[in-house]
Amino acid sequence: MTNRVIEHPAPAPPAAAEEVTGLAADPEARARGLAVAAVAKRFGDRTIIQDVELGLRPGEAAWISGRNGVGKTTLLRVVAGLIRPDEGTVHLAGFDPRRDRRAYADRIGFLSAGDRGLYARLTVTENLQYATRIAMVPRRGRSAAIDRVTRLFELDELLPRRADRISMGQRQRVRLAMTFLHDPLLLLLDEPRNSLDDEGLALVVAAVQDRLDRGGMTIWCSPKGEPPPFRLAHELVIADGTLVRA
């Protein structure tokens, strides 16, 4: 068990210290997986998350649920390296998101909640091509990467169409394809079901399962009652700012 859970919502410094010690004792998560230690984030006076501890080993997936606004997105943004925590550390395969920005970003695939992030006036192909290039996929591997996600998310018919001329569910499949393009070690999926029909959900589940089978990791965030239909190492919920077992 790599996941460390704070059982009580109230911040307790000695317990938090214990958790950090506990996490460090799992060399597998720290060296090859994801290690989130004592993370806290505040916006002004408002504490969003605190004392968050999470460890994932290669091949493991976690589902994080919780009410709207409890801090799921904030936690994912911290893990993605998009925002900095006020306290605590995050490491992925031993890399720090600030000190080793490029190496860290190479290993992250982040799907934000909502339906944004596509260039509406570019075709699906152009969006994918652009995404491979800012993901710095080597030139010789780009076509293969695009072919792979096109198959994974069944995008063939959408490729020549402009992003603003496809349905919301189809856009979500394109956004997911962009997240998987560089075959990241850790997938951070914030409400990935958004607008997907059953067929679309099956595609994303198969893609996640494929990555897990090859030693990848996944954090899937969705509302309570919507667990992802694949094997989970950890089922967690954010309550009162802390991560606890669901």
Partner: peptide, 18 residues
Amino acid sequence: VMGSWERTVVSPLGPVAG
């Protein structure tokens, strides 16, 4: 506004080069 900046920030390219 479009949300594409987020992708640039978390990409290996990064925000400064972006």
